[in-house]
Design a protein around this nucleic acid. Sequence first.
DNA 1: CTCAGTCAAGGGAAC
DNA 2: GTTCCCTTGACTGAG
Length: 304
Amino acid sequence: MKIGYPCVNESLDCSSGATFRLASYSAERVETTVAGNLACLQRILEYNVAHGLRFFRIGSSIVPFGSHPINTFAWRTRFAAGFQALGDYIRAENMRVSFHPDQFVVLNSPNADIVQRSIAELEYQGAMLDLMGLDSTAKLQIHIGGLYGDRDAALARFIATYRTLPEAVRRRLVIENDDRLFSLQDCLRVHEAVGIPILFDNFHHECLHHGEPMAEALRLAAATWHPARDGVMMMDYSSQQPGERKGKHAATLEEELFRGFLGHLHGLDVDIMLEIKDKEASACRAISVLHELQLVAAEATAAR
DNA sequence: CTCAGTCAAGGGAAC
DNA sequence: GTTCCCTTGACTGAG
């Protein structure tokens, strides 16, 4: 089981997602920004190794305007060695990384331009994983998309588009159940049609479900991952921020809830991405919780 | 220097 | 029909 957090490290004084505005675009600026972003990413990964965090979601803006037509800078060749060095480090330290393209990537949009831009963004993020020399266990995580007033048609469009995706994208793509529109059941329907793995989000499942108990939901999602091709199932973990709008992520890890959740795994191996506001601080506490539980288990074994 | 407004991109729900 | 939400930092330009 690997534990991780997304995109930003709040303890370090650098960002791996520094960007700039379209109006101030220049090739030189792309070059200096990417160089800085890659250097910061390396520092974040080293921090993670030092703290036992072996799962990390890389932010989408490593390369500013990475899939935008304005960016004609040959970053793939210019930074080939930089990406490869990062990938070498990730593999050497037995880490796992992923990307989560943001809400503008909508594969089931009825608008062909949006779909085309979405595919371009997925190709850009997949290309970074290729440059790092990482296999198809490094995933690109997206949601099914919009509803457009017709669930069946929306799912059918996703499936049709998925079948047209380039192999470099398709081998890495996974879908996540969301908190308002597409539940685990919807994801399972897509999985049954095309075999795509489901990245399970426990908090979204709490917000939107059809009565499946947590342990059952985990089992269903886990069965969609092909071990050799996809690796250990990935999941997002969060909990409700008390007193806030339903679906608002917790500001910090509530350890009792996390312990309770781990109990639903029943030995299932998962890599857990903590979608908690305070990032690595909570991730480190999650590691502590795991260690305590392992200690308790070891003592119980010794006592027998 | 400071600070408020803004930044490529979508979609849904509240009002 | 319009505004606000997600989610986030950091860039930008006005003062």
